[in-house]
């Protein structure tokens, strides 16, 4: 029983993870690389630049090429951090370096000295590894669902299970927290992770109640469970914060991630149903009639 579950999850996840990586490297990685270009552009300080904002605020600072917004004593940097200068109003001067030292961005700081994979083959291999692990994790969850269900599952039903996975782990959490390019503006990390996980779990439960509920009352309850996380709402980014990459790039990125997830979940559903079915056949009894010739 457990062996069948584990094999179903491992095999379906391995196939789905490889296909996901192909889609990732051909369609997603170029967009990530482009966003990282904007991320680096945005954070590279240059010599002091005097400039004027539409509101008539004029000032000079050494990070002059960093896009930012000014509202009197309050301003927002391109990487999504906003801060208020207590006494300052119009015409103040500061450097990007000073600003960075002076404020705490809370969520988390990237330690640039920490190890990260080299661009190129090494980075692609780590992506393959992480995608494989993620797809296997999803495959195990799917196989756990099959096991709870208990009945046999044909390929079409497998696709429907995969579709439910796509809705629960990609589409519905994405309604509140769409896929982010590097250097996107976003709210507190822990709050977003909690909302994302809560939405995924609630979506699984809600869809299961709708699919297997015996009465309209149950199905209505399932719908309610689906809606609750969205009624609560995802943690927002700070007001006015914007990412470093152009919105057109971010929009395309969201579409392509949804496409990649849909491909992964379709294959996961199909493969899991196939493997699960094959392993059941192996356990099939063959009734031989005792008096056969």
């Amino acid at each position: 029983m457990l062996q069948r579950l584990l094999l179903t999850g491992l095999l379906s996840g391995a196939v789905a993870g490889v296909v996901l990586t192909l889609v990732h490297l051909t369609m997603l990685q170029p967009l990530i690389a482009e966003a990282e270009y904007y991320e680096e552009q945005g954070s590279a300080p240059v010599a002091g630049v005097q400039h004027t904002h539409p509101g008539g605020i004029s000032h000079m600072h050494s990070g002059g090429n960093i896009p930012h917004l000014h509202e009197q004593n309050f301003h927002i940097h391109a990487e999504g951090t906003a801060h208020v200068h207590a006494g300052a109003t119009i015409g103040h001067m500061h450097s990007a370096q000073v600003a960075q030292a002076a404020h705490d961005h809370g969520a988390h700081a990237h330690d640039s000295s920490a190890w990260s994979p080299e661009d190129g083959l090494e980075r692609s291999l780590f992506t393959l590894g992480a995608n494989l692990l993620t797809a296997i994790a999803f495959g195990l969850l799917l196989a756990a669902g099959f096991t709870l269900y208990g009945g046999s599952i044909n390929l079409v039903q497998g696709m429907m299970w995969g579709g439910a996975g796509f809705l629960s782990f990609s589409f519905l959490p994405g309604l509140g927290l769409p896929a982010e390019l590097p250097a996107a503006a976003a709210g507190d990390l822990l709050a977003r992770q909690a909302w994302w996980l809560g939405t995924a779990v609630a979506s699984c439960i809600g869809l299961a109640i709708i699919a297997f509920g015996k009465s309209h009352a149950w199905r209505a309850a399932g719908l309610l469970v689906l809606v609750i996380p969205h009624a609560i709402g995802a943690p927002p980014a700070e007001a006015g914060a914007v990412g470093a990459a152009p919105p057109e790039l971010a929009a395309q990125y969201i579409m392509v991630t949804l496409f990649a997830s849909a491909i992964m979940w379709s294959i996961l559903g199909l493969m899991a149903a196939y493997v699960h079915g094959r392993l059941a056949q192996d356990q099939t009894v063959t009734f031989a009639e005792p008096h056969a010739t």
Partner: peptide, 16 residues
């Protein structure tokens, strides 16, 4: 985080 960075962005897990 760094090892799985691109995957996290691809699967649309909250990242950063």
């Amino acid at each position: 985080h760094n090892a799985a960075h691109d995957s996290r962005h691809a699967i649309s897990f909250p990242c950063h």
